[in-house]
């Protein structure tokens, strides 16, 4: 009797080659990765991959590049644990294992035709950038685009040159803020929530896409609700430490949801009032 499910393992891992790296800040390193025969990863903005360093382990990492970028994909890794520390030791030509992409990303088909308000705090820019660049590459399909970025200090800013390009565009409104300034900083100073009241928007046709640490979500959501943006039009990406990526290991569970399968992107109406979500 041949089992119907065949012999497909959920843990099939393919080798990826690091083509380019860049130390972005003291803790964050950028990686450009190609798959065998330059095959596309086939992801949607907001999804993640499981990255393996043989002998060390596997960790979930957000995809930072838009699927419109062909032949390779990009990751930004903060050095915090065993796998990320091992990744930081790797350079161009080195190999890593890639499994995925996993999860539900940003619903680009639903976003089309609407105005977009992007809000990223700290490392939140890393996954959000996959959607921002997707929107910029398909700019005519979307309405007004506003980008609000925040981080602790100017030294923590990621993708400075790219952000500058966004800022220069006439079809994108882009503002940055830092918690603590330095003499060279020309942007805003203060929390990202301070930028929201000044944004002029049509609440009915605006989707707010927010990625940042849990504490930021609580205050940003309050500001967005004050602007009358409907709860289902507030999209969040939640961070959890997935071990399997296929909805089994239990580490990423939020109520009845598995963050790795049902998320990481959730609309606020699905997680409002849910314990242990934010």
């Amino acid at each position: 009797m041949k089992p119907e499910h065949g012999k497909e393992s959920a843990y099939i891992t393919q080798p990826g080659t690091i083509r380019n790296t860049r130390q972005m800040t003291r803790l964050e390193k950028y990686f450009e990765i190609t798959l065998p025969r330059q095959r596309d990863l086939g992801h949607e903005p907001g999804q993640f991959v499981m990255v393996s360093v043989p002998g060390v382990g596997e960790a979930p990492i957000s995809i930072s590049s838009s699927p419109t970028k062909k032949g390779c994909f990009e990751l930004v890794v903060r050095k915090v644990g065993a796998v990320s520390t091992a990744l930081h030791a790797l350079d161009s030509g080195d190999k890593v294992g890639i499994r995925g992409p996993f999860g539900k990303g940003f619903p680009t088909a639903i976003l089309e035709g609407n105005d977009l308000l992007f809000i990223a705090g700290g490392l939140g820019i890393v996954p959000l950038r996959s959607l921002i660049n997707f929107v910029i590459d398909n700019r005519k399909d979307f309405g007004k685009v506003t980008i609000l970025l925040g981080c602790k200090t100017p030294q923590d800013m990621l993708f400075n040159e790219e952000v500058h390009q966004w800022w220069k565009r006439l079809d994108v409104s882009c503002s940055c803020t830092v918690d603590r300034s330095d003499p060279d900083w020309k942007g805003n100073v203060g929390l990202i929530t301070g930028l929201i009241p000044g944004v002029s928007l049509d609440a009915e046709r605006t989707f707010a896409v927010v990625v940042g640490p849990p504490i930021m979500y609580k205050f940003v959501i309050l500001e967005l609700l004050k602007k009358d943006i409907p709860e289902r039009q507030i999209l969040l990406s939640l961070e959890r430490h997935m071990k399997c990526g296929v909805g089994k290991c239990g580490h990423c569970q939020i109520g009845e949801y598995y963050c790795c399968q049902d998320g990481p992107v959730f609309s606020y109406d699905r997680i409002r009032g849910k314990h242990e979500a934010l």
Binding site: S9, I12, T13, P15
Partner: peptide, 16 residues
């Protein structure tokens, strides 16, 4: 065991 790996190849072979 979910898979075996070889660092030099590198390769990851799923195990059932």
């Amino acid at each position: 065991t979910l898979l075996t790996y070889n660092k030099t190849t590198p390769a990851w072979d799923p195990v059932l």
